[in-house]
């Protein structure tokens, strides 16, 4: 209860803060629209030559793109900014303040930042998803919607865990800013369903950087391809990654306080 109210307070303060900078809102809209147009041109180019891509039809690929934009917005609104601040805190020693608070420090470092204007991408992504679903031949049912929401949430959890582990390496290696570029580059692969990639890359995108679970699996739910087994697998993987990320974080904090020395 206390943790929820804490997260809510941070969210409220973060939103109030961002509302001061309205120019950013318009810049974000422009940026998001450009990204959308570029994405649509890409799709159009592909389907100029063929009618399906490894079993995915045009509206289905549109759904993948929608999820990609939506998830990207979520990551940049809620996950990435927190992790960047954590990096700064470890470098500058201001993490001390988070560690001397009577609340689990992992919660504090995960909820402090929120970039409201990135929500533009979430809304835009949702719009693309709706447009795609309307053009699908199969009927979109309530279980599909439910599966989609669960898959989306699990994907978000997995990306968060991945980011937290990546950021926690800062406790040992201080300079890890390049990681952001690395992540953005790999996430960009999520624009297409992972099934179109060669096996080795698909494995990496599924289990190392869970882009497959963050984008492709929710898109599978939208297009009626999601099997209960995949969803169960996603649940297990999310739980496993969460435990692993927590372990890495705790080891990092131990190292920070010199407990391991």
């Amino acid at each position: 209860m206390r943790l929820l109210s804490l997260a809510y307070t941070y969210l409220r303060v973060g939103i109030l803060n961002e509302l001061q900078y309205r120019v950013n809102f318009f810049i974000q809209i422009l940026q998001s629209l450009i990204a959308l147009v570029v994405g649509l041109i890409g799709l159009w180019l592909v389907f100029d030559h063929t009618t399906d891509l490894n079993g995915w039809t045009q509206p289905e690929l549109l759904a993948v793109m929608g999820v990609f934009i939506l998830m990207g917005g979520l990551i940049r609104a809620a996950i990435q900014p927190n992790m960047m601040r954590l990096l700064d805190d470890v470098q500058q020693g201001t993490l001390d303040f988070a560690l001397t608070k009577p609340v689990d420090a992992q919660v504090i470092v995960s909820v402090r930042e929120f970039r409201l204007w990135q929500v533009v991408d979430v809304i835009l992504g949702l719009g693309v998803v709706v447009a795609a679903v309307l053009r699908l031949e199969s009927r979109f049912t309530l279980p599909d919607l439910l599966g989609f929401l669960i898959a989306l949430a699990l994907g978000g959890v997995m990306i968060y865990c991945f980011w937290l582990m990546l950021t926690s390496t800062a406790f040992w290696i201080i300079r890890v800013y390049e990681l952001v570029n690395l992540f953005e580059g790999l996430y960009a692969a999520g624009r297409w369903p992972v099934s179109i990639y060669p096996n080795w890359l698909r494995f990496g995108l599924t289990f190392l950087i869970p882009v497959a679970f963050a984008v492709t699996v929710p898109a599978e739910a939208l297009t009626g391809r999601l099997t209960p087994l995949t969803l169960l697998g996603a649940g297990l993987l999310a739980a496993g990654l969460f435990l692993l990320a927590r372990l890495v974080w705790r080891l990092g904090v131990r190292n920070y306080s010199g407990a391991s020395a």
Binding site: R2, T9, Y10, K101
Partner: peptide, 8 residues
Amino acid sequence: ELQRAIYG
């Protein structure tokens, strides 16, 4: 306000 939330 954030301090208030942290310390309840």
